[in-house]
Amino acid sequence: MTKSLFSLDNKIVSSLLSMAKFGTLAAGALALTVAAGAAEQADAQASELALPHPDGEIVIDVTRVALDTQMQILEQLQACLQEGFEFADADGNQQIEGDEQFDWDDERGFCAESARSDFRQAALREEIQMANAEQSELRDEQAALIARRNEANAAISALTEGAMAEIQEEGL
């Protein structure tokens, strides 16, 4: 399985999934925490994540997902993998062997699909928030334009009334 590493977060996911394969998810959680701090310090944000999946790598566009949201989803992914590993390791020997591999592949696939869905939902939520903010700005601009129009109309009315009054005075 090829692993394209696009960012620090992507390396974290690849590491988590590789570690999960060998049942060392506690180390994966530590790597996630350490890397999360490094990513925040570097003010880095992934543009894509590649999640290894039994049926082929899943590449996810995360440009519209905030870094803190990315990290929450990765933590959920790590928890899902831990539960999946425990489920697949039927004999409890901390190794995936024999028929356990089929269950493990299913669990990893489920976790990767769930993470992809979470990223999509997060991107949609952030798009909605941006659209709402834009709409609010447009409403504010429209209100300002209406106020300026009303001021201009009032000024025109005042000028018209003044001109009419002047015409009437001259006419009398």
Rank of each mutant, 00 (worst) to 15 (best):
68 D>E: 12
97 E>R: 08
10 N>E: 07
4 S>L: 12
82 Q>N: 08
127 E>F: 12
85 F>H: 00
162 G>M: 10
103 D>R: 04
45 Q>I: 05
36 A>S: 14
150 N>E: 11
4 S>C: 09
79 A>W: 10
84 G>Q: 00
14 S>R: 07
141 E>G: 07
120 R>K: 10
91 D>K: 04
147 A>K: 05
55 D>V: 09
68 D>N: 10
150 N>D: 12
90 A>D: 12
118 D>M: 08
161 E>G: 07
104 W>V: 00
108 R>Y: 03
56 G>P: 04
13 V>F: 01
138 L>E: 09
6 F>G: 05
41 Q>C: 10
97 E>I: 11
46 A>C: 01
32 L>D: 05
162 G>V: 11
142 Q>K: 14
160 T>Q: 13
170 E>D: 07
136 S>E: 12
24 T>E: 10
155 A>I: 07
3 K>D: 06
167 I>V: 13
77 L>Q: 00
126 E>A: 10
55 D>I: 06
110 F>Y: 09
116 R>Q: 14
67 L>Q: 12
1 M>S: 14
97 E>H: 06
76 Q>F: 09
75 E>P: 01
106 D>R: 04
5 L>V: 14
20 A>Y: 04
16 L>G: 00
91 D>L: 04
25 L>P: 03
11 K>C: 06
30 L>E: 10
132 N>Q: 15
13 V>S: 02
135 Q>G: 11
172 L>F: 14
126 E>P: 01
96 I>Y: 01
64 R>F: 12
153 N>F: 14
67 L>E: 06
90 A>V: 15
161 E>N: 14
115 A>V: 01
167 I>R: 14
144 A>K: 08
101 Q>H: 11
34 V>M: 08
151 E>R: 15
12 I>W: 03
53 H>G: 02
30 L>Q: 15
141 E>C: 08
149 R>P: 00
61 D>W: 01
79 A>Y: 11
129 Q>S: 12
106 D>G: 10
148 R>P: 03
116 R>F: 06
145 L>G: 02
4 S>H: 09
134 E>T: 09
133 A>N: 06
61 D>F: 01
69 T>R: 12
42 A>Y: 00
167 I>G: 07
140 D>Q: 15
97 E>Q: 14
101 Q>R: 14
11 K>T: 08
119 F>N: 00
48 E>R: 13
128 I>W: 05
131 A>Y: 06
40 E>W: 12
88 A>H: 02
153 N>L: 14
80 C>Y: 09
9 D>N: 13
51 L>V: 03
86 E>F: 06
143 A>M: 04
117 S>P: 02
145 L>E: 06
3 K>E: 09
127 E>H: 12
74 L>H: 01
104 W>S: 02
25 L>H: 02
100 E>L: 02
119 F>E: 01
131 A>G: 05
105 D>P: 04
124 L>D: 08
135 Q>I: 12
69 T>I: 10
60 I>D: 00
44 A>V: 05
54 P>A: 02
133 A>V: 05
159 L>Q: 15
35 A>L: 05
172 L>H: 11
79 A>M: 13
150 N>P: 04
63 T>I: 06
16 L>M: 03
36 A>C: 05
52 P>M: 01
115 A>Q: 02
36 A>W: 03
166 E>R: 15
82 Q>F: 08
